[in-house]
Nucleic acid binder design. Structure first.
Length: 748
RNA sequence: UGGGGUAUCGCCAAGCGGUAAGGCACUAGUUUUUGGUACUGGUAUUCGGGGGUUCGAAUCCCUCUACCCCAUCCA
């Protein structure tokens, strides 16, 4: 955990500290209707991570309230994902379906309270009655059935006496609620469907909004963490628990932004389309952002965990760059994985002046990876290098083999090109080269400097392997559908050549193919006869090696002009107030705010009765009082207009600074105390005496020599820093004007 | 259009009235038998825009703008 906490942990910590809960319990509650993807991984990391961090528990719960979509194969995949990521759920896996009897009882309780009713309108009519975002809805005519009737109907629903869709159970909330979700939400629907766990026991199934909050409550969950799109559902969540009287300790819902990654899709629907449309090879296709896909591609659980940790948790919709994910896996594998040599695009090189053969000892790990292990590399006259490592007409800055430029065969000798053999089409098919016998790695006395050391394999002992090279699945950053697919997302190389030790010794399943990237022995298709490797991710490439893709020119961004919308005109009354206030000396902005807000202007005028200091009163009213009045009515305030006037009086008389006034205001707002008493009891009278302030300033200056330097070098912002420090030393009581002057003088 | 959210560097993201954290990406240099790694630097005079309050505002107030979510018997 980094030192800066995310907002969820901040909430959890506060709740623990305040004693709201003794212990934190979270849950990861997927619906088992599809394969988990990296978005689930984020949720898993959050829920299990928080539970771990605060010594709590996290449940794994299958939210299986819709029997027509769910299947046990998905619960297996979900369990696998959590396990693979290294988390342990508390006790056994939970199922919402296990709570069906309890949830049913709660429904009956609601009916008995007159808070739920059986509605028999059909789907279409119900939609119409629901209204629109701007128009209130209308209650169904069935809403006033008696409790007995509702109970009887609901019982029959449960017993399967009706067909699907004939009736539903609804909460009786408010058909004109601004929040559409609160317009008498459905609690139960009839579904004559086989449930993969509950079998055919139930003819009715609870809706998400009813089942989820109750399941959380039943499990003793404290923090019900979900994604942003459930924000509107929070009201129902609270309504159900509150109405049923399910009080403390009870769960509260908190929402975070779901994960988006560019160049891929994350929705179950789109993923399903790709799988069913055959654009990819199943749910574990290595190009997919599914857990199964990453696993098969060769990603480590640690890298996914680190990724989730690195992207943070917040409430802003965001799209994370794949580069961040790629960094995570490179960073992880770099420390762990043996390096071997593989030639993806073999080009034959015959070393004309070399005879015989030898074996060269080569470490599996570079000098900066503290791991042991090595293998023998066969070397002989005929070898293969990668086609990309030779250029007949090299671009500027090319480091590898050219007709003019020698190169080192990694761990072996330096060679230079003598002759290029081409086929009838002009394609290079072979290089005749010469080696420098005294240039062998470790015993090089040739004195030749080369710019690069390249990978190679010896021709007779190299093994042929299949390599699957993956590129991003989509060619656009925010793909919509199949039309955005990258046609080259999979490249199969059938005849790559690899050094024999990899196949014979099998020192690992993940490798770095030197200078190429990280690769993974495909867990499904790999056989001894046909070894298959998946490319996990390429090595980071810098500067000239990837020059092919020139950077798009820096956008000549015109300073964006933002057009202001139209402000609603003032009414006649408001205009009159506005005029009156400006005449009192208020600036137009303040007068405007006051005039347009009846509560504020009322409060302002009342304060004015106590003290005739319109400007200062207006300022505190339009700022601090306004903040409180946003969510409260005047009579709910702990302080009175008279008290505000008294507060202003002290500011007017320079008894306290405006900074202290804010502090006093907070106090008044909290407990309704009298401002003068607060100032007296806390000794908040302003300090303006230089004799007191000056020593403080000198002390601060002495303690911060570096900042003094920076200030003198021209960083004038630091004045604020010093003022802040001095003010802190006076516990806010210093007269800021005086402090400012004195600090400025001392510093110069 | 009513309601609920969100806006800080190319991408994430801290920050909660007193010096604009950090990571990715980018970039320059050092080391390097991987154009990798590691290391050392450079990258926001400014926080969606405009006003206001304050000695001092990314943080408080007003206002405008943009984007996301909500009218499934899905979750």
């Amino acid at each position: 955990m980094s030192e800066s906490k995310d907002f969820l942990r901040t909430i959890v910590e506060a709740d623990l500290k305040s004693g709201k809960y003794k212990e934190v319990t979270t849950r990861f509650p997927p619906e088992p209707n599809g394969f988990p993807h990296i978005g689930h991984a984020k949720s898993i990391c959050i829920n299990f991570g928080i539970a771990n961090d605060y010594n709590g528990h996290c449940n794994l719960r299958m939210d299986d309230t819709n029997p027509t979509k769910e299947d046990t194969k998905y619960v297996e995949a979900l369990k696998d994902a959590v396990e693979w990521l290294g988390f342990e759920w508390d006790k056994s896996v939970r199922y919402t379906s296990d709570y069906f009897p309890k949830i049913h009882e709660y429904a009956i309780a609601l009916i008995k309270m007159g808070k739920a009713y059986v509605d028999s309108t059909n789907e279409e009519e119900m939609r119409e009655l629901r209204g629109t975002v701007t128009e209130a809805g209308k209650r169904s005519k069935y809403a006033n059935r008696s409790v007995e009737e509702n109970l009887e109907l609901f019982e029959k629903m449960k017993n399967g006496e009706f067909k699907d869709g004939e009736h539903v159970l609804r909460a009786k909330i408010d058909m004109s609620a601004a929040n559409m979700k609160m317009r008498d939400p459905l609690l139960y629907r009839i579904k004559h469907a086989h449930h993969f766990r509950a079998g055919d026991e139930w003819a009715i199934y609870p809706m998400y909004d009813f089942a989820h909050c109750l399941s959380d409550y039943i499990e003793g969950v404290t923090h019900s963490i979900c994604t942003l799109e459930f924000e509107n559902n929070r009201d129902i969540y609270n309504w159900v628990l509150d109405t049923l009287g399910l009080t403390s300790p009870r769960p509260y819902q908190h929402e975070f932004a779901r994960l988006g990654i560019n160049y891929t899709v994350m929705s179950k629907r789109k993923l399903l389309e790709l799988v069913e449309g055959g654009q990819v090879n199943g749910w574990d296709d290595p190009r997919l952002p599914t857990i199964a896909g990453y696993k098969r591609r060769g990603y480590t659980a640690e890298s996914i965990l680190n990724f989730c940790d690195g992207i943070g948790i917040a409430k802003a919709n965001s799209m994370v760059d794949v580069a961040q994910l790629e960094f995570s896996i490179r960073d992880d594998l770099n420390k762990k994985v043996p390096r071997v040599m593989c030639v993806l695009d073999p080009l034959k090189v015959t070393i004309v002046n070399y005879e015989g053969s030898e074996e060269i000892e080569a470490s599996y790990y570079p000098h900066d990876v503290p791991k042991e292990g090595s293998r023998k590399l066969p070397f002989a006259k005929e070898i293969y290098i990668d086609g990309a490592d030779f250029e007949e007409n090299p671009p500027k800055g090319y480091f590898r083999l050219t007709p003019e430029q020698a190169v080192r065969l990694k761990y072996a000798y330096i060679i230079k090109c003598k002759e290029i053999i081409k086929d009838t089409n002009g394609n290079i098919v072979e290089i005749k080269a010469e080696y420098y016998p005294n240039s062998k790695s470790g015993e090089d006395s040739s004195g030749i400097k080369v710019k690069s050391a390249i990978q190679w394999v010896e021709s007779t002992q190299a093994k042929k392997i299949e390599v699957r090279v993956y590129d991003r699945l989509f060619k656009t950053e925010a793909p919509e559908g199949v039309e955005d697919l990258n046609p080259n997302s999979l490249q199969v190389i059938k005849n790559a050549l690899i050094e024999p030790a990899v196949i014979n010794q099998k020192p690992d399943v993940r490798f770095q193919f030197e200078r190429e990237g990280y690769f993974y022995a495909d867990p499904i298709d790999y056989t001894d006869e046909n070894p298959v490797f998946n490319k996990i991710v390429g090595l980071k490439e810098s500067s000239s090696k990837k020059k092919k893709a020139p950077k798009p020119a820096p956008k000549a961004e015109a300073k964006k002009v933002q057009i202001d919308g139209e402000v609603v005109a003032m009414s006649k009354e408001e205009q009159a107030l506005f005029d009156k206030y400006t005449q009192l000396g208020l600036n137009s902005e303040v007068a405007n705010t006051l005039a347009r807000d009846a509560k504020l202007s009322h409060f302002f005028e009342e304060a004015l009765l106590t003290r005739n200091s319109p400007v200062n009163i207006a300022n505190i009213v339009t700022n601090d009082v306004a903040r409180e009045l946003k969510q409260k009515e005047i009579n709910e305030l702990k302080f009175s207009a008279k008290q505000i006037a008294e507060l202003v009086e002290m500011v007017d008389n320079e008894l306290i600074s405006s900074k202290i006034a804010k502090q006093v205001f907070e106090e008044m707002n909290k407990n309704g105390a009298n401002p003068k008493e607060i100032v007296e009891s806390k000794g908040l009278i302003q300090i303006s005496d230089p004799a007191i302030i000056l020593p403080l300033i000198e002390e601060i200056i002495a303690k911060n020599p570096e900042n003094v330097e920076k200030f003198k070098a021209g960083n004038t912002k630091l004045l604020g820093f010093f003022v802040g420090q001095v003010l802190k030393a006076t516990r806010g009581k210093g007269n800021p004007k005086v402090v400012n002057e004195l600090v400025a003088r001392e510093l110069n």
